[in-house]
Amino acid sequence: MTKNIAILLLLVLSLSSCHSQIPIEKFRVEIENLDTEKQISQYWNNLYKVDQEILMNTSDLIVADSISISNMIKTALVLDIHGTKGYNSNGYSGFVPILNLSHNQIGKSQIAYWPIIEKCKEIGGAIESFGGKYPAYQLESVALTFYNYSLFNQEEKYPTLVSKLSEIETVDIVDELLKSFQHQIDLRELSEVEVLNSWYRQSFEDRIDESEFSIVKMSDDNLYLKKYGRIQRLELLKTKNKTKEYRIESEPFGWKYQYSEDGSLSLIDEKDKELIKYTQVK
């Protein structure tokens, strides 16, 4: 582990322990002080190592969020300040923006970061083929984070879903990423009041996982979808007979959940087609 990476790890551990803000201005100054293409290239390499050597080996969600969003912010700042100077679209720097998205587990962060993915698509290089032809890997990351749903072999959906992501206006990427970090801090302050129902996780229509997810009521009196140790607030869309429709806060595709009083739950797409009918945990 290099000295720079060790220093960053100590920084994010400090941030997570005190629930402080990510030091954006400190990041901005260090990036502005990169004078040569070689320095910028090394900075990209360090971001790659942080992702691979630290983030991927971190099980603590608070620390992981700090590292992940810090990397996203730094990537946005490097591209904003230096453009493609020192950026190798087929080298480490070409992989970093893609990994930033796929290794982040916060929906709001991924939405805020999507313009960076679009910028990388314009530049070309690794993004064209990494994880399959663009945008398969990127859309899979977003769909799994929001809905735990896999888009594998569903290429016909890609144009519509990319269009929906592109239509979301992000005024300031860095500011939105910081807000997503603060939002996670706020969610951790809530306590669980009640579990309404639980189901087996299911990313594919014909394959049921052994692990579970739940709809829970939290101390702010709102309902949340709980999975992987995280919660996502549910917004009530409508009530019909004994069935309610909910959407996940900030979800991008227009998909929703149909939840009935008998405990049945389905994931429905924007055309009201059932994608998954979940099996309730008894």
Rank of each mutant, 00 (worst) to 15 (best):
K121F: 05
R201W: 05
F27Y: 04
E251D: 00
K227S: 15
L196I: 14
T75P: 01
F181I: 00
L237M: 09
L190A: 01
I62H: 12
Q258K: 11
G229W: 10
S266D: 10
L237A: 02
E192Q: 14
S219N: 09
E176C: 08
H82Q: 06
G94K: 09
E25V: 01
N90V: 11
I268D: 00
K179G: 09
E169Y: 10
E270A: 12
Y87S: 01
D51L: 14
G83P: 06
A64L: 04
V193F: 06
V174I: 11
T145M: 02
E167F: 10
K26S: 15
E128A: 09
Y92W: 12
Q105A: 07
R28D: 11
D186E: 15
Y228W: 04
F27K: 00
R247C: 14
H183R: 12
A64M: 06
A126N: 15
L187C: 05
M56D: 15
L13E: 15
R207C: 04
N104P: 05
L265Y: 00
L8K: 14
L11I: 01
S68F: 02
I73K: 02
Y92R: 13
I7W: 13
I116A: 00
Q21V: 10
L196V: 12
D60Y: 03
K121L: 07
Q110A: 06
N57W: 07
V78P: 03
E167R: 08
G83R: 01
L144S: 00
S264V: 12
Q52C: 09
D175F: 09
L144V: 01
L139D: 03
E167G: 15
V50Y: 07
D206K: 06
K3T: 15
D221L: 14
K282V: 09
T58R: 02
Q110T: 03
S66V: 06
S16I: 13
N197R: 07
D172V: 04
L77T: 03
N4Y: 13
N57Q: 12
R28G: 12
I173Q: 04
I248N: 05
V142Y: 01
S66W: 08
K85M: 10
T170Y: 11
